[in-house]
């Protein structure tokens, strides 16, 4: 995904502060788009979170989860794994009131898969 594609992705989701395109297999941030200028170590921490949450065995049946949503009172984080097992993933930081259904639909479309 290009930086422009990430920017367009974020513009369609009010309340999405940051989207990171990462390769969780190598734990590498590939691109990002954010409302703020986030330091690299912050992006790396988000990538590490995605790698742990979407790792083999993270799902209940033993297979890796396709999506993980993390919500606190102050914010939401969402992690999406590409369906083709390449390790590509999207990580988002959003307001707690983000429309989760819209977020999931846009993320799956961006990664080239149907909604889970």
């Amino acid at each position: 995904m290009t930086p422009r594609a990430l920017s367009e992705f974020r513009s369609r989701l009010p309340g999405c502060d940051l989207v990171v395109y990462a390769d969780i297999a190598s734990r590498t941030v590939l691109a990002s788009d954010g409302a703020l200028r986030y330091p690299q170590e912050y992006l790396d921490a988000l990538c590490l979170s995605a790698a742990e949450l979407l790792a083999p065995g993270s799902g209940l049946g033993g297979e890796p989860a396709a999506e993980v949503l993390f919500l606190t009172e102050t914010g939401a984080r969402a992690f999406f794994r590409a369906p083709d097992a390449t390790g590509e993933s999207l990580c988002c930081i959003c307001a707690p009131e983000i429309d989760v259904t819209d977020l999931r639909r846009e993320a799956r479309a961006a990664l080239g898969g149907a909604p889970a």
Binding site: S58, G61, A65, V68, F70, A116
Partner: peptide
């Protein structure tokens, strides 16, 4: 809260 969603 963490919610884990399996593949489609």
């Amino acid at each position: 809260i963490l919610v884990f969603i399996p593949p489609a």
